[in-house]
Simulated scan of single mutants.
Amino acid sequence: MDAVSGLAAAKRIVVKVGSALLVGEDGADRHWLAAFAADVARLRARGQHVLVVSSGAVALGRRRLALPKRTLTLPEKQAAAAAGQSGLMRAWEEALEPHGLAAAQVLLTRDDTEVRRRWLNARATVETLLALGVVPVVNENDTVVTEEIRYGDNDRLAARVAQMIGADLLVLLSDVDGLYTADPRRNPAAEHLARVSRLTPEIEAMAGGANAVDGVGTGGMATKLAAARIASAAGCATVVTLGRRPAPLLAVEEGQRATIIEPSTTPAAAYKAWIAGSLAPTGALLVDAGAADAVRRGKSLLAAGVRRTEGHFDKGDAVVIRDEAGVEIARGLVRYEAEDAQRICGLKSDAIEGALGYTSGPLVHADDLALAAHAPA
């Protein structure tokens, strides 16, 4: 795989845009944004879904509030984020609107990608936006987060978002055109690496520090490789390329320099493995023969086929699914808390809203199911 084929083949792409690209002397760089929006529109026109993780709120708010050029205190940083986020979204909306694309603001905290219930809610929102043809613009909710509970940088946030939505490709726009054997700004003899098949300690040692020239942003190649490691484990490839050029995605497809870091698995396999082996079940669902057969064939678990529930679980928790003999056939993430799940056992899908006042679809969606090792597909 190379960067050209990786970008062309990806169905779902997350692009991280840093402050150094977005923010100029007089605010948002609308010329760059306009060219990048054309890039996004080109991918959308050929059926690819694009989600943008955008920095820039703090940098824009800092200028708007005329805060001094020094390290900001946490309250100052939160105030700058509050003042700058509206301007950031306005810039994105103005850039995308000429292409008939709508932007939607999605502000996340670390808990939204680490706590399962909130993760499910955030994923459902983003999935709906993508299905509607909207371009989600994601940023960390810097107005409310503290240093102890923040992602640390938007490279990591972008990787977590890619993991959350099962993206095929994560694109990290950088101030260099990929990974080199050393920092090319300091070592002219550094060699460019077009492809990395595995992130070894030797590869990670090649990363340098953040760009101190522009005075904005917190990332660097080290944070990009850390993000690529998260993405790789989730089955998502990562492309690192130069962002400071018009239409940087088109530039990659035209053969301009970039580095692709290949995934170690597929998104679906990584997600299923996470459900099967990384989560401790908090309850169980006992199902009839018809439901057991459907689950074994990769179908969603509907309430109509569930006889009873066991244990105390919340929406988003992992549960064991057992057949009439008590044999575990799968594990999955349940979409209802235990009390509501028990109330709808045996009900057909069109009766759930009448019983609960709401519906979240099947008890366990097929996408959130992992078959037990002994259960034939």
Rank of each mutant, 00 (worst) to 15 (best):
L250P: 04
A83D: 06
V287G: 00
R118M: 11
K299M: 00
L96P: 00
L333P: 03
R296P: 00
I344C: 09
A66T: 13
A57N: 05
V196S: 03
N141Q: 02
V213N: 10
G220V: 05
E93H: 15
A41S: 09
L43M: 13
A162F: 08
D112V: 05
T238M: 01
G6F: 04
G61A: 11
R322F: 03
V145P: 01
E114M: 14
T146D: 02
T266N: 09
A45L: 10
L249V: 09
S5T: 12
L285F: 07
A79W: 05
G61T: 10
E204T: 14
R307D: 13
Q342Y: 11
V53W: 02
A304S: 08
I230C: 02
R62H: 15
I260L: 13
D39E: 05
R195Q: 11
D2F: 06
P184G: 06
A104T: 09
L67E: 07
L302Y: 02
L301Y: 00
R116A: 10
D177R: 07
T128P: 04
S278Y: 12
P246M: 06
L74Y: 01
V252E: 01
G152A: 11
L33N: 06
G61S: 08
Y180A: 09
T282C: 10
E140F: 05
A103R: 01
L302E: 01
M206Y: 05
G305M: 06
A303K: 08
I149C: 15
L301H: 00
L96M: 05
N141S: 05
A182Q: 02
H374G: 02
A372L: 08
V58M: 08
L172Q: 02
E324K: 10
A338G: 11
G235Q: 07
E147C: 06
S232L: 07
A158G: 13
G243Q: 00
A226D: 13
Y151D: 02
L43K: 12
F313K: 03
T109K: 00
A276K: 05
L225F: 11
V58P: 04
L179I: 14
A375D: 04
G305A: 08
R64L: 15
Y151F: 15
R156A: 14
T282I: 05
V171M: 02
L302M: 09
V17M: 09
L107M: 14
I230A: 01
Q342S: 15
E148R: 13
P263L: 04
R42T: 12
A377F: 15
A222G: 05
A8M: 11
A34L: 12
A258V: 08
P136L: 10
D368S: 11
E93G: 15
A375C: 12
